[in-house]
């Protein structure tokens, strides 16, 4: 089946996640082979996902772990987790 650009954009996530069926994947690849706009959309989306997932983008606040475990230590010293049924 010949896909237009809009159809290809709808399939970009499935293409990146490799969840498309073989026939749809082949249709998308046929389109990508001759459409520079869709190829650039795919390349830029893939690139942006790699950048956003990098741990350097969101860094933990300085001292976060120390403050967290200090607070947990206080709670732990106060007593064991209750056996009650209160909701979290």
């Amino acid at each position: 089946m010949v896909l237009n650009c809009r159809h290809v954009w709808d399939q970009i996530s499935g293409y990146l996640d490799n969840t498309l069926d073989a026939a749809t994947r082949a249709d998308v690849e046929n389109h990508l082979a001759h459409c520079e706009i869709c190829s650039a959309v795919l390349d830029s989306t893939r690139n942006i996902l790699i950048l956003t997932a990098d741990d350097r983008v969101f860094e933990l606040p300085l001292g976060y772990r120390e403050r967290l475990h200090a607070r947990l230590t206080e709670a732990i010293l106060k007593g064991p987790p209750p056996k009650g049924t209160s909701s979290p």
Partner: peptide
Amino acid sequence: NVTPMQLTDWREIPSQSLERSEIR
């Protein structure tokens, strides 16, 4: 549907660019 930004080419941005705080 969301329409993506339509470009005609994309030059890969390497992960080293994340060393720049404005990119992060």
